[in-house]
């Protein structure tokens, strides 16, 4: 139970740190890392939700959500990086 709570709280702290960093920093790379930290926070919360006790198997649904979420985050990050690269190249 304590581990679950720890995971959940850490997740929410990570999310908040990510939001702060996203809003406070201008460079694209920092914003993208901030978004991914936010994502990691949400995934922590979901993993914590899946926990049902040591004896039982964890709830598979939040795990499926985390997997889908990671795929989405990777593709979105890739697109943002590509757009950012275009901007930088045309600056030269």
């Amino acid at each position: 139970m304590a581990t679950q709570l720890l995971f959940g709280l850490v997740g929410i702290i990570l999310f908040l740190l990510g939001v702060w960093s996203f809003l406070a920093h201008r460079p694209l790379l920092r914003k993208l890392i901030a978004l991914n930290v936010m994502g990691a926070g949400v995934f922590h919360v979901l993993v914590a939700v899946a926990y049902r006790g040591l004896e039982k198997t964890p709830d598979p649904i939040p795990h499926a959500l985390v997997l889908t979420g990671i795929v989405v985050a990777v593709s979105a990050t890739a697109l943002a990086l590509t757009l950012g690269q275009r901007l930088e190249h045309e600056d030269d």
């Binding site: 999310f15 996203f22 978004l35 994502g39 959500l65």
Partner: peptide
């Protein structure tokens, strides 16, 4: 980027 911020916030709500 703004859209990603919005959907991450939404996802935490879902969790």
């Amino acid at each position: 980027l703004v859209g990603l911020l919005g959907s991450m916030t939404y996802l935490l709500g879902v969790a």
